[in-house]
Design a protein around this nucleic acid. Structure first.
Lengths: 233, 233, 233, 233
DNA sequence: GATGAATGAGGATTCATTCAT
DNA sequence: CATGAATGAATCCTCATTCAT
């Protein structure tokens, strides 16, 4: 390697390529690690596999990550970067109805996160939360809480504008979160939770869930005044 | 708690320990294994731990299960026995409204399955489906499919009686399944997906979700005729 | 033990049966152990297998033999009992030619030992001598040495009577021992040393070897006077 | 002795240990494994012991051999390479008498194989044939059969040239093979079959056996015409 | 920086041996 | 006496981690 380095001294252009390569390594490793952790779980994934998938040797992985656990942390951190920040701004200036806003919210969430590899993080956290409480807390802080807040804002807006009925937002948020989370988990769990994975049109799934969330399944508008809150004892 | 209990078992009636236990061993091991597999995942669980939690030695586990993997299979099989069969019969003779029926359905599902240790199987399958495709297929066959069918029947009944609006049942079922599954996973994932685990009243969660499912969040009964189906592209 | 014993006090007849049974057990175990040790080696044989083949439980084996190693010792001891004593007497009074005597010797050795299960001991000692030096020494003392002595006597008799040429008996004995040992080992080693095991007529093998031993393969009686001792440098 | 040698290796030139060794590892492991398998048998040999004797750690062994069994296979294959091929050619051009040829054959066999560590394979196959039928078949194919063919050729040559009497070669070959095999096994079995191991001069043993094979033990050239074939029934 | 050979702690599994019944 | 459930030391093998090149 000192050989190559000396060689590079004479070829600055090549050196540059090398630099870029070096910069690219951690990213490739994180990508590979994300895929494998999501697919097989943390414990069942071998670092050698991660390295191989990233096209480097086992030793190289440890140049960038102190340990397998650090790699895990990095994978989680890397994939929860602030998509939400941008969203908050977008929503600030949203003009349409709250129903449209919710629809926009769910669809863009799917397009920007759900449909990407980053969505695997969700499954990963479900699977490994117990083994990595610190990471789970971090995830909670960085993803869950802001996500909940975002949904809350939309629902609150709807309530404020009289578009949505009064509700306990602490629980109502899950009407939005649960279907989206479910879709992610189904996607990453080999369709364990779907009769057959490929048969599901994800966009249609979202549209249908949105519909239910907004209007429910009932055919008639029952007691919306006092509220359905008292249904069931 | 089970740990303490088992510890105590050894102190008083040590006399007929052998005889009393012989038959119970496999069950105790399955119990311990379920807990640990759910808590830490398959790969991260050591058989010795399972044995210890069941109050036996490492070797004893292998007296009853050929391998760790066989133990896993047994855990899954043991905990997905036909709870659903009984339900089908109950529903056959259900007399009330379909809304009530759905509420009864969700609540009794929680009481009989969701709230029990068996619910851990759900998280287990989400986490390990990719590592155990055969088991996942089995689970799909034995649990997912019948579960879907059950929900379908309820929704179909509502449609037939004019209580529910027309809908594509292939997708509508998830309006029921997703919130329930989400609750299970949240319960078993240290509340990764909840601001704080204990702050959630599960019965209230179910009640709220049921309400949303039935009546939606909107304050006014919008275009139920042509259908909200066209909300957003 | 005390229980049964007391029981037997009242039923002498039954006690007798029990006694015989008890007496039979060790023998059955030794038989099974011999077979398995010969077939698979000491280390690769499981005591449970031995017990199972003898039709008793694993625990029972340990009633009769303190340990697996003790069982091994017993197997060896049991199967090297004094066949040779009787032979010595027979030979004392043998009347025929020394060639006939050698033939009789080899054939009866095969009939009484080589063809029986006890011959497995030979293979066993070859395989395990290094692991059980004490047993090997014992075997050497009890079997090898007397066996050599026996062959020596026959050859000595031949020399004394002028039937056999002068030879160094320390080495000549192997001309008899080697072919016999080879036959045993071939028999117990799946015919590793024979093109195909079953194709070998053992009686014919012995006859042929005897012939060679007595008369050699050469077609002409060369320099028997000075002796072929100087063949090759 | 190899143990001591290897110990010393570590003291002086530790510098390029890695590089120097890399290529040598498998060979060193095979050497160590051969010794230990021959000495103690397959089952009784621990892989860690093999590794230690080769001067490496347990894990390193598995870098080169998938499993203990693969190591065994490799040991056998490695040590039965075609020594016989060269022999066939030598014999093609042998000029002397067939008696000399046989003597040359036996002596060079001893020098090139019998006296070397490779001879341990013979004992190994006798001990483990039943546990490794596939390897035994391979050994049979690669060693036994060609070896028999080689001896056959020599005897056939003797018969063709009128030097040896007519004989059934299927059986006569063992007159040569048995004594040689016996010598090998005695060597590797702690002299179980010899009064005392060291007291045996192996070269003299071979000379003596050759003499017997050629001329027999009888003092007079008896009935060579009709043949000794009818000696005893 | 990059490699991959080497390590050895750790985990699954086996099996001789014990012992309560 | 006989059983076989239970044990845990011993062994094979894996894999995260190190480090000389």
């Amino acid at each position: 390697m000192p050989l190559i380095k000396r060689f590079c001294d004479k070829l600055p252009a090549d050196a540059h390529k090398r630099e870029r390569r070096k910069g690219a390594r951690p990213g490739e490793l994180l990508d590979a690690a994300l895929d494998l952790f999501v697919e097989k779980g943390f414990a069942a994934t071998r670092v050698e596999e991660v390295a191989a998938r990233a096209g480097v040797s086992k030793g190289t992985l440890f140049l960038y990550f102190q340990s397998k656990e650090e790699l895990f942390k990095a994978v989680v951190c890397e994939n929860i970067s602030g998509h939400l920040k941008g969203w908050n701004d977008e929503f600030e200036s949203f003009e349409g109805s709250s129903a449209d806003m919710l629809g926009y919210c769910m669809n863009s969430w799917w397009d920007r996160l759900g449909a990407t590899r980053a969505s695997g993080i969700n499954k990963l956290m479900v699977s490994e939360a117990k083994n990595f409480p610190a990471i789970a807390a971090f995830y909670q802080q960085e993803v869950i809480r802001p996500g909940h807040a975002l949904i809350r804002r939309v629902l609150q807006r709807g309530m404020d504008r009289g578009e949505f009925r009064k509700m306990d937002l602490d629980y109502a948020v899950y009407s939005v979160i649960a279907p989206m989370t479910f879709l992610i988990l189904a996607k990453h769990s080999m369709g364990v939770c779907m009769p057959d994975d490929l048969g599901l049109d994800q966009k249609k799934y979202i549209r249908t869930q949105l519909n239910t969330i907004l209007y429910g399944l009932s055919s008639s508008p029952v007691n919306l005044g006092q509220g359905p809150e008292k249904v069931r004892a």
